[in-house]
Structures are given as structure tokens and as C-alpha cells.
């Protein structure tokens, strides 16, 4: 079983639209995992029917038992995040400010403070409209994506793939370069980097490449909206060549991305023109590379 992860540094590069197309092309052999839980959009195309729903607990927050509290104020004094305030010696926690460090719990002389796990969101096993299984998640407001959630979503997807004899786990990866991305890449066999020819696109490619190289994961490059800036497109291609990144192809600026999205379809389902052919070829290249 091979794990293929699609990532992009900044948003808006068309990563999810391309992942949705790959999901369609791999529909009979893959399990899909959406780890872009900060801005999860893949479900808008895959239109999943939820089969199983689970709560996700990860971060902690302090809770003060008003009966046990003696109003000494130690907790408020040690908190570095202004999360505890008091009115008439009644102490309360502002959950949006609480970091979950537990310092207050440790200094409370009467054990009136308990760190409780926060309900951070939900995760789901679903059946997409291609019947392909999809594992995805939704986080609450002010809750950060974490390596834990990404690892969980990927693990569930891998188990499903094993059980149902699927060859591929296709992952819509997290944005940025922090902990969730590291978790997205960890254990992967191939990483597809989707970018656009802009100053920030090149900058992001370099950062992500460093990460993939350190993890010894083979990488491929897709340039979207490639005709917006030919010079930068060429820069991207030569960076890929110099660094042993498989150049998978380029897609000129194209309204099909939006039109397909409005119809709730992936690009390859929406039309059969050049763009669709290019995306099909990209997927074939990836599969050939991963299988050899």
C-alpha cells in the first residue's frame, strides 16, 4: 500500500481541486484522507455520506470548581495567558485564552482546578459519491490542527485501505510547514507539491522541499496557473530539475477549476479537454513512479 500526499504552501493554488481529480481517477483503488482540516473543502466535491462519526479530544482547558475554590487567587497570578479573571473573588477561566499548560492546576492549594480535555472537533469515516471511502474531520473555532489529528485521520485511512485491499491512500495535506505538515508527510511514499508561479509559490516550494528531502520522500511538482508568469514557471521547473523533483506538469490559468467546483464535480469529470488530459497524465506519472 502506498501513501501519496498532496500539499501546497500557501492556499488558493488549486490543491484541493487537483486532489479531487486524483481521487476520481483512483476511485476504485484508493482510500482518501482529508488532512487539510483548517479549510477542509474536499467534501464539497466528494459529497460524502457519513458512516461513522467520532468526537475528537485533544487540547486541555482548566475548569475551576466554584464550590471547592477558596478564592486565594494563586491561579490568576501564575497564569501567563490572562485566561483567569475574577469578580468578587469568584474565579473563572476564559477558554479562548487558556493554553492548557496546567500551571494553575498545579498551584491550587485545594485542588479546585481540573484540566479537562476539550472537545476539539469530530472525525468521520464516509463513503464518497465515488463509493471510495473518505476519512475527514472538522475542528471547532480557535482550535488548531495538530499532528495528533492528522496522524489519526491517516491511520484510520490506512487501516481501511488494508482491510479493503486498496493499494493507495491519497492524502489532501495540511497547509504551511508546521507540525501538521510534518505529520502529513511522516510515513508517506510520495509527496505532490502544487504551486503557482508567483514569488510566494517559489518560496514555499523551497521550504517544503527541505522538509521532504530531510524525510527522504520522493517529490513531484505541479505548477498551476503556469501562464500567469512564464519566467517564474521556468524558475520552478529548473529548481525541480536541480533537486531531483519529478516535474509532473503544468496547467495554464483555467476557469474550469471554478466551473467544475460550482457543479460539484472534479475537473476530470467536468470536461474532457486539454486540462483534464494533463491531470490524467499527471496521475499516471505518479502511479508509475510510486509502483516502481
Amino acid at each position: 500500500m502506498k501513501e501519496i500526499v498532496v500539499i501546497s504552501g500557501k492556499g488558493g493554488t488549486g490543491k484541493t481541486s487537483i486532489t479531487a481529480s486524483f481521487a476520481y481517477l483512483a476511485r476504485s483503488v484508493a482510500v482518501i484522507a482529508d488532512c487539510d482540516v483548517d479549510a477542509a473543502d474536499l467534501h464539497l466535491i466528494l459529497k460524502p455520506t457519513i458512516k461513522r462519526k467520532e468526537n475528537f479530544y485533544s487540547s486541555f482547558e482548566a475548569k475551576i470548581d466554584p464550590v471547592a475554590c477558596i478564592g486565594c487567587g494563586k491561579c490568576e497570578r501564575v497564569c501567563r495567558f490572562d485566561a483567569i479573571s475574577s469578580e468578587n473573588r469568584i474565579f473563572t477561566v476564559n477558554p479562548l485564552n487558556c493554553e492548557g499548560c496546567g500551571y494553575c492546576e498545579k498551584v491550587c492549594p485545594v485542588d479546585a482546578i481540573k484540566m479537562t480535555q476539550k472537545l476539539d472537533g469530530e472525525w468521520y469515516i464516509s463513503e464518497s459519491r465515488y463509493v471510495t471511502p473518505l476519512v475527514h474531520a472538522k475542528l471547532g473555532i480557535g482550535t488548531e490542527n495538530s499532528g495528533k489529528l492528522v496522524a489519526l485521520v491517516k491511520n484510520v485511512a490506512k487501516q481501511l485501505a488494508q482491510k479493503s485491499n486498496k493499494d493507495i491512500v491519497l492524502v489532501d495535506g495540511s497547509p504551511g510547514i508546521g507540525c501538521p505538515v510534518i505529520s502529513s508527510l511522516s510515513g508517506a511514499h510520495f509527496v505532490v507539491f502544487v504551486t503557482e508561479p508567483s514569488v510566494s509559490g517559489i518560496h514555499d516550494l523551497k521550504r517544503v522541499y527541505e522538509l521532504a528531502a530531510k524525510f527522504n520522500i520522493s517529490a513531484g511538482l505541479i505548477i498551476n496557473k503556469s501562464d500567469l508568469n512564464h519566467e517564474k514557471t521556468n524558475d520552478l521547473i529548473s529548481f525541480a530539475e536541480q533537486n531531483n523533483i519529478l516535474f509532473l506538469g503544468q496547467i495554464p490559468y483555467n476557469e474550469n477549476f471554478t466551473q467544475a467546483m460550482i457543479k460539484g464535480l472534479s475537473i476530470v469529470e467536468f470536461s474532457d479537454d486539454e486540462i483534464s488530459k494533463t491531470i490524467r497524465q499527471m496521475w499516471t506519472k505518479i502511479v508509475n513512479f510510486v509502483e516502481n
Partner: peptide
Amino acid sequence: SADEAHGA
């Protein structure tokens, strides 16, 4: 380790 949000 599956229970660690960060720092696994």
C-alpha cells in the same frame, strides 16, 4: 503516542 497533540 497517539494521545499526544504535540511533541510525540
